[in-house]
Amino acid sequence: MGSRGTRLTALAVYMSYVFNSVAKWNLGLALAVPLVNTLMVVSTIPPSLGQLMELLVSVTSFFYSTFTIVAAYAFASDLSRGTCTVFLSQPLTRRGYVVTWMLATTVVPATAYLLSFVVPFVVMDVKLLASFDPVDFLLLLLEGISLSMVIFLTGLISRRPQLVAVVGVFVHMILFYVLAVAYYSTYYYNPPSELVAFVYALIYPFKSKVLYPGWPQYAGITRWAVLANLALSIALVTAALEYARRIFEVT
């Protein structure tokens, strides 16, 4: 087998190894999300289906966030404990290693989440899905990926799982409420501050749409914020890859 072939084989095998390792945590998603979805659909009669879907995504996205933190924590643990050395001593490049874990903390939970979200509706009544706005999902994935990348980079650079957990909880939960309070307090007597609206939509494109919908005068701002979020995600991915290529050492 040639050098390139070996490299690709090693990457594919390691990806499968890591994905299979994180699969057991993602089973948590497969337990929690369909349970919530099914229970909510059969037990509540919402004002409208669109609202029900938004509510479901809002509630279950919490599980999604949690599992991205868990995956990033596992990644940082792999680095801090040194178990990564075993695989990085094989024909796996440092970049391949980082890409694998990047996917394991972003794409794998997102796939598990999407599947576990959609399946209950396929079972109950596939028509229910028609009332759901796919843009919501896109925004949720965008938000999930950008926040996951922040947590992932924290793990990659610091190699400290505890710090990853703290940053994860901060960006997914605390910062969200801090900005929500800022948004609301600026809004009560006057229109919300443009800056707060922009920052909110930049960091939380999904939550800002669902929980705090924009005012007409901020529609443009929100669009720019979503684009900025996309640019931020691309920049974070590029930063992680470049860090892996130039700086990342296995100590």
């Binding site: 057991k24 497969a30 369909p34 349970l35 794998v108 796939t111 598990a112 576990s116 399946v119």
Partner: peptide
């Protein structure tokens, strides 16, 4: 395997 495990679990949970 992730997809398989999620589908298997989800079906049973629902």
């Amino acid at each position: 395997r992730v997809v398989g495990a999620v589908l298997a679990t989800t079906g049973i949970v629902v």
